[in-house]
Amino acid sequence: MGGYILKRLALAVPVILGITVIVFLIMAMIPGDPATAILGSYATPENVAKLNRDLGLDQPLVARYFIWLWNMLHGDFGQSFSLNRPVIDEVLERFNNTLILAGSSFVLCSVLGILAGVVSAARQYGFADKAITFAVLLGISIPSFFLGMMMILIFAVDLQWLPVSGMYAIYGGGDLPDLIHHLTMPALALAVVATGVIARLSRSAMLEVLRQDFIRTARAKGVHERRVICGHALRAAMVSIIPVLGIQAGFVLSGAVYIEIVFQWPGIGRMLVDAILQRDILLVQGGVVFVAACYVIFNIIVDVAQSLLDPRIKT
């Protein structure tokens, strides 16, 4: 097992390197001159040239890439000009907030999605199945940002159950109940789409497994139907559900960008959108590479979970 994890980690190195190359190349395509963007159009040519030199922008492309990579490996992601603070500090702080939002959403959508899928499959064509199928269809069709806005109108403005936006109350908040109070709506809004996708997939995976011969064997042995569904069938279905959980984690992380904007959540998605509009390239680069690298690590965890579940995967 340990060997397998090491192997997966070793395989992640080229992937993360590839990510840095892709991000760097995309950013290098940006027309114009970052120094001008930073200093504004009234800057003198000398000042622009000096800043370019300070930023290492007078070097050839390849050299710039390696300087950037080398610095990142030492924890230096550069300085954000728009915020005037080190990129890594900002990214870490914002990513932490995003993790709280996306993480709770991910747990929510995994549990609810699989549960709904199993119930739906076990009661195929029954009332529960039809209700779940309809709810799922609605869930995957509604834009999460629109859903978030509607939730604000209903639960915050109309019913006044939950706060409109933010992560903590401005005065006096900051403890866990306060966080949960603020987290509930955005986490739910973010979870809806992924719950729908996971429920759909779990349903079809369960239906597929329930038709297999080994389910007939279990029934022929006299295994109780509840255990056939929740033991034999679900376990086999998890083999195809787990990789989807990995993909959906990426979708939850992506959807967080919209939700952070709608609910004014101080997460990394909002930071990135602002950075793009401000053309703060180092902040965009650093943020994208950092989040993508975390996602790669997360997918390794998914693979390891998969190999623990399925002995047929060679470890």
């Binding site: 993360i16 892709i22 959108v273 994208v288 996602y295």
Partner: peptide, 19 residues
């Protein structure tokens, strides 16, 4: 796989940032 290694919106944001 490399493209899949990004949560999709990061890639989309990066492309929009560049273009």
């Amino acid at each position: 796989d490399m493209l899949m290694a990004f949560p999709y919106i990061l890639l989309a944001l990066a492309i929009v940032a560049a273009l």
